[in-house]
Computed example of a mutant assay.
Amino acid sequence: MDVQVNVAFCVKNLAKGTEQVRQELIKDPDFRVAEYGCTSFCGICRNYFVAIVNGNPVTADSPDELVDEVYAYVDEVIFKDR
C-alpha cells in the first residue's frame, strides 16, 4: 500500500469493545491508528462499534465485524481505482 490509512477511535467506543479492533489494526504497518476523546460521531458511536477511516465513519454490530468492515472500506473506497 502506498497510501497511508488513518484510523481513529473514540475512547468511549474503545471501552465499549473496539479496543480489540484497535489492537488488530495497530499490527498493520499501512494503518496509522489514533484514539481521541471524541471523534464527533456521537450518534453512531453510541449505537455501533465505530472506526473513523480517513475521516469517514465505518460501523459494525460487533468488533470482529468492524475489522472486516474497515478492510472492506479500504479496498472498496480508498483503493477502488488501483
Results as ranks from 00 to 15, higher is better:
V70S: 02
Q4W: 14
Q4P: 11
R46H: 12
F41G: 06
D61H: 13
V5N: 08
D28Q: 05
Q20L: 14
V50E: 02
C38N: 02
D61T: 06
E19D: 14
A15P: 12
V58F: 03
V50T: 04
Q4H: 12
R46G: 08
V50Y: 00
E19N: 13
I44L: 03
T39F: 06
K27W: 07
D81V: 08
R22I: 09
R82N: 15
F31L: 03
M1S: 10
E19K: 09
I78P: 02
K16F: 13
I44A: 01
Q4M: 11
A15D: 13
A15T: 13
D2C: 11
R22C: 12
A72E: 15
N47P: 02
V21E: 01
I44C: 01
D61W: 07
D81K: 15
L66R: 02
D81P: 07
G55Q: 04
V53G: 05
G37Q: 10
L25T: 00
N56A: 10
I78V: 12
V5I: 12
N54P: 07
R32V: 09
A8H: 13
V77F: 09
Y36Q: 03
M1V: 15
D28L: 07
V3E: 14
K27Q: 14
V50P: 01
V7G: 03
V11H: 14
Y36P: 00
D64C: 08
K80D: 12
V58P: 10
D28G: 08
R32P: 05
L14M: 14
I78E: 06
L25A: 04
L14N: 03
V74E: 00
F41E: 07
E19R: 09
E24W: 05
V21T: 06
I52C: 02
N47Y: 08
G37F: 11
K27H: 08
Y36F: 04
E24A: 07
D61L: 10
E24N: 11
T18P: 02
P29T: 04
S62W: 03
R22W: 13
E65C: 01
